[in-house]
Simulated scan of single mutants.
Amino acid sequence: MRRGELYRYRDPSGVSGTGVVALLVEFPPNEDGHQWVAVKWLGHNPYIAFWPGIGDLLETHGHLGESEIRWLDPDPFDPEGDPALTNTGLYPL
């Protein structure tokens, strides 16, 4: 598992605000390749949601590039450990 944050640069909806708007945990891949993600939303209306992968989460809540994942831990699922991702902590879109 690894931890991360959903960081929003701009909030076009005006609902969740900017900065760190959610905390997340990515689970190891299951037999069909999905890496489920648990997301704890912060702010005035906190809740927890589950997504079948980071791509699915960002497709809905990425606001067309206005948000990104900032990883707090290195990627334990990448045996080669891409140094570019480890150094920035960002999830490539």
Rank of each mutant, 00 (worst) to 15 (best):
P29Q: 08
D11S: 10
L64N: 15
I48R: 06
L85Y: 08
E80D: 09
L58R: 07
N87F: 04
E5R: 15
E80L: 07
P46N: 10
W36Q: 01
W71I: 07
R2Q: 01
G89N: 04
I69S: 07
L57N: 02
H61M: 13
R10Q: 11
P46F: 09
R2N: 00
Y47V: 06
G19H: 05
E80A: 05
T18G: 06
L57G: 03
P12H: 08
D11A: 12
L85K: 11
P79S: 05
G65C: 06
T60D: 12
L93Y: 15
Y9R: 13
P83L: 07
P79H: 04
L24F: 04
A49V: 10
I69T: 10
V15C: 03
R10L: 11
L57F: 10
V37Q: 00
P52T: 09
L23F: 02
D56P: 00
R2V: 00
I48W: 01
R70E: 01
N30F: 06
P12N: 10
N30A: 09
N87Q: 13
P29W: 02
E66A: 15
L23V: 03
Q35A: 12
G55W: 05
V25I: 14
G19T: 09
G89C: 04
F27I: 00
A49P: 00
L57Y: 03
R3E: 01
E68L: 13
D75K: 07
S67R: 14
S67C: 15
D82F: 05
T60P: 00
A49G: 10
S67Y: 02
L42P: 01
E26Y: 01
L42R: 09
E59V: 01
L90Q: 10
N30H: 10
L72S: 03
G53D: 08
D73K: 11
E26F: 01
T18A: 08
G4L: 06
G53F: 01
Y91G: 04
G62P: 02
R3K: 13
S67H: 05
A38V: 03
G43W: 03
D75I: 09
L6Q: 04
L58F: 08
L93V: 10
F50A: 08
Y9F: 13
P28S: 12
I69P: 02
I54Y: 00
I48G: 04
T86G: 11
N30R: 13
G62K: 07
V37R: 02
